[in-house]
Simulated scan of single mutants.
Amino acid sequence: MTSDIAARLAAGLDGAADQLLFEATTPWDLDAAMTDFGFETGVCAAQDIAGLDRVHARIRAAGETATPVLPRMVAEGRLGRTAGVGWYRYPGGGGLVIDPLVEDLLREEARFAGVSRRDLSDDILIARLLLGLAKAALALLRAGADAALIDRVSQRALGFPAAHGGVLSYLRTAAARLPETVLGRLSEDERAGLLHQP
């Protein structure tokens, strides 16, 4: 049960990150926003460890709509740390290094798709990631998962900051402060489910 919860939450986070990378940001800026918020590691660095081919498969299996970015990364052999290159480069098998070619790839794919990239504040980046997690968590609740277990798994499996509690605990207290541009992406039922959980 916990592995299924972890996979569903990770897919929600991965899907949100995929959209943000396509529309607005870079892996290193997204990861920095996450670690500043208190995550143990950024989503892109974590994806490089997991393998981008596996991440892409996880997003598809969860029914998330993927952008053209991950398929291109995988097709070009940018599979992550084990391949020596993913969102970051790993020269000589060492630590991660920013790869400006990734930013070029993101801008190119957005241009091909007619998407105008825009700058988003760290607060909006985090709110959009939390929205992806919220949708996954609410689907798990509807399927009968326990809210406390979802919170624990979000901390252990995703590195959600313990200082904020688990993802559901945090969202229940923070939902009123999330920007309306983000909350507007939730349906009325999802908002109600988020705000009125046990």
Rank of each mutant, 00 (worst) to 15 (best):
R172Y: 14
T67I: 04
A10E: 01
R152C: 09
Y88A: 00
A83Q: 00
A127P: 05
L96M: 15
A10Q: 04
G144V: 03
A148G: 12
L21T: 09
G80A: 04
V167H: 02
R107G: 11
D119Q: 14
L120W: 15
G193Y: 11
S169N: 08
E108L: 01
A10F: 13
L141R: 00
G184H: 13
S187F: 14
P71H: 12
A83C: 10
Q155M: 15
L120P: 09
A62T: 03
Y88P: 01
E188W: 15
L168Q: 06
L125H: 11
L30T: 08
V55L: 02
Q19I: 03
G193L: 09
R172K: 13
L149E: 07
T25L: 00
L96H: 13
I150S: 00
E190R: 01
L140E: 00
P71M: 02
V182P: 10
A134E: 10
V167E: 01
Q19L: 10
D189C: 11
H196R: 12
V85L: 10
A46D: 08
E76W: 07
I59R: 00
V74E: 09
L141F: 10
G184F: 14
E23A: 12
A7Q: 02
A57V: 03
Q47S: 15
L20W: 14
L20T: 07
M1G: 07
G42T: 02
V55Y: 03
R156N: 13
T41M: 15
P68F: 12
A174C: 08
L158Q: 04
L194N: 07
T26H: 09
A134W: 12
F112H: 14
I5Q: 01
G86M: 04
M34T: 04
E76Y: 13
G144R: 06
L158M: 04
A11I: 02
